[in-house]
Design a protein around this nucleic acid. Structure first.
Length: 588
RNA sequence: CGGGAAGUGGCGCAGCUUGGCUAGCGCACCUGCUUUGGGAGCAGGGGGUCGCGGGUUCGAAUCCCGCCUUCCCGACCA
């Protein structure tokens, strides 16, 4: 039993000034957490109870799925991370430190290397696989900007799992089992989520999905179809490509378009010149093909120019580009770069000067909407000139496709064609078919049935445990305070005494509290003396136990009040029946 | 990393422009009395290196320089 008279708790009447998002505000105000360091929080007793309940549910579902728990140090030597290149690749987000002998160490931001090495250490046969192991561990990332309390800290708790299989079929099965375990976990946590397709990072990536709690305060933008169940992170959205059977446009022709370096000016010119107007409709920005040049900086330092062609009504979304070209980094193509490519007429760049086999030799990738037989107005590689009716596949051939164009509300779903809508969410889980990257880097191989060495294929799967606490608070609160789902509430029942000191309420409440505990329910008991009823009610609402029981003025008639925190509904229940009544509520 | 705002008892804030007596207010905390179904009243208390370091000055929360931290927007971020 948690007695508020002795509980290590102090609620705040006012919002802390540095807290913006509701979960941060309320968790601090209600006495669950306290800021201890930039991006680091102390868990107070109520908060730690909730945290452990969340952790227990995560652990129970991992165990139920047959995954085995291990535990690594957070403080690790440099070497394994050097072997995979991440000592440098992780950049400034990695906490690095030295021991007394000047050896490099790090505080692990994630543990792929260690899991890979421990499996290599123990196992060497296909007979040992598949295996999935996990840990619940404190992670460290030197975030440029910790924010929103528990939602993005520099120290946080993550459940990370890794699967090890001999082949791709096995990986897919391990991935499926984790996906189902995650669905069960988030369902039990009472956390709403959307499963979205995500970018796996490296080119030619394998399957990756994120579990996003759909919340405005979230940092991830995703789109979902209004008709079917397609949903994807913005970076990973696939564009629905039209199917055009044959080119209907006439032969391409170069036209004079003086002073039209922008798409808007070009469209205005096309619609304003009698020789160029269309018979069927006005020209639109989406009829034009805009070619944007960027630079890619590869991890080895090599710099490669890249041309991206998108419909003129859309911007190139650098986040989407980055996700496509990772691990290379996109960078702007500046005036100095243009000087090296005199064949590029800025503002009038067209496919004629682009492509690996062209004069520039610049790789040319286009949006999937630029399909075979589609006709475009695009630059003629001469200032003041454009080409009309340039048909893809007939008049030019790109080097490939790239998903780089911005995504908009209302864009058609790639699955069913219905309009999609965008929303924001908090990433609470991520499942990812890693493949052989780490196994190759760290030489994790097993003997197969034929006695041949094969490289193991891996999956990695994460749940932000401390973030999940904040996400639950974020999805479940009102103006008065938190409202915990029963599965993670710090108590089953919040029992409040409301009556004059010395009256019958206190002894009756003491008896009731003991009976509730005896019946298997956990009780947060407001047994404080000299505290006015208003304070008790406000604190109860702030703390957010889903069921509040008031032993008050009804006690003379043998009645106590049962309040539902979420709905606000109250009902009087005979004190002799309240234990059974509450037990049915709590177990419902 | 760029732009903006801000650091004063546990929490929320004032004071700073124009340097000066004991650094003030509300909440919280302690003592006493009253009060007890929606953040009570009265009286009396305790608690603050004014973010850190340096400088100017007879004198700095206040002015100057540097740094750190927090929040917001952007960049960044399995």
């Amino acid at each position: 039993m948690l007695r508020m008279s002795t509980l290590f708790l102090r609620t705040l009447r006012e919002d802390p000034s540095d807290a913006e998002v509701p979960s941060h505000r309320l968790l601090v105000r209600a006495g669950y957490i306290r800021r201890a360091a930039p991006g680091g929080f102390t868990w107070l007793p109520l908060g730690w109870i909730v945290y452990r309940k969340v952790e227990a549910i995560v652990r129970a579902e991992m165990d139920a799925a047959g995954f085995q728990e291990v535990h690594f140090p957070a403080l690790l030597p440099r070497e394994p991370y050097e072997a995979t290149g991440r000592w440098t690749e992780y950049g400034p987000n990695l906490f690095r430190l030295k021991d007394r002998r000047d050896n490099d160490f790090l505080l692990a931001p994630t543990h792929e290397e260690m899991f890979t090495l421990v499996v290599k250490d123990l196992f060497s046969s296909y007979r040992d696989l598949p295996v999935s192991i996990y840990q619940i561990q404190t992670k460290y990332r030197d975030e440029a900007r910790p924010r929103a309390g528990l939602l993005r800290g520099r120290e946080f708790v993550m459940k990370d799992s890794y699967s090890f299989d001999v082949n791709d079929d096995g990986l897919r099965e391990s991935y499926r089992r984790h996906r189902e375990a995650y669905i069960r976990t988030f369902d039990r946590l009472g956390l709403p989520y959307v499963i979205v397709s995500a970018m796996s990072g490296a080119m030619g990536g394998s399957a990756s999905e994120e579990f996003l709690a759909p919340l405005e305060v979230g940092e991830d933008t995703f789109v979902r179809c209004t008709a079917c169940d397609y949903a994807a992170n913005t970076e990973a959205v696939r564009v629905a490509a039209p199917d055009i059977a044959a080119a209907t446009a006439g032969p391409s022709r170069v036209v004079d378009t003086p002073g039209t370096p922008t798409i808007d000016s070009l469209v205005d010119h096309l619609n304003g010149d009698a020789d160029l107007t269309r018979s069927d409709r006005q020209w639109a920005a989406s009829d034009t093909l805009k070619n944007v040049i960027i630079k890619l900086v590869h991890p080895d330092g090599r710099v490669e120019p890249l041309a991206i062609g998108v419909p003129g009504d859309r911007e190139v979304d650098m986040k989407r580009v980055e996700a496509q070209v990772s691990p290379a980094e996109p960078a702007p193509f500046g005036d100095a770069d243009f000087a090296n490519y005199p064949m590029l007429a800025k503002g009038y760049i067209g496919p004629g000067s682009l492509g690996l086999n062209s004069a520039s030799g610049i790789r040319y990738l286009v949006d999937p909407r630029v399909v075979a037989n589609s006709a475009w107005v695009t630059g003629a590689d001469r200032a003041g000139h454009h080409v009309v009716d340039l048909v893809c596949g007939r008049d030019f051939t790109p080097d490939g496709l790239i998903e780089a164009a911005e995504v908009r509300d209302g864009d058609p779903c790639p699955e069913c064609g219905a309009p999609m809508e965008s929303a924001r969410g908090i990433e609470i889980g991520h499942i990812f078919q890693l493949g052989r990257k780490y196994a190759e880097a760290l030489d994790l191989k097993v003997l197969d049935a034929d006695g041949e060495l094969v490289t193991v294929t891996m999956g990695s799967y994460g749940i932000g445990v401390s973030r999940a606490v904040a996400a639950i608070a974020e999805t479940s609160h009102d103006d008065a305070g938190l409202i915990w789902p029963r599965a993670v509430s710090p108590a089953d029942v919040h029992l409040v005494i409301a009556g004059k000191e010395g009256g019958p309420q206190r002894p009756a409440a003491e008896v009731l509290a003991a009976e509730l505990e005896a019946a298997g329910m956990s009780v947060l008991f407001d047994d404080r003396e000299g505290v006015s009823p208003g304070v008790r009610f406000k604190d109860a609402e702030l703390i957010g136990v889903p069921t509040i029981v008031v032993v008050g003025r009804g006690i003379d008639d043998g009645l106590v009040e049962v309040k539902d925190r979420r709905s606000g509904e109250r009902s009087d229940v005979a004190i002799g029946e309240v234990v059974a009544h509450l037990r049915s509520l709590v177990s419902a």
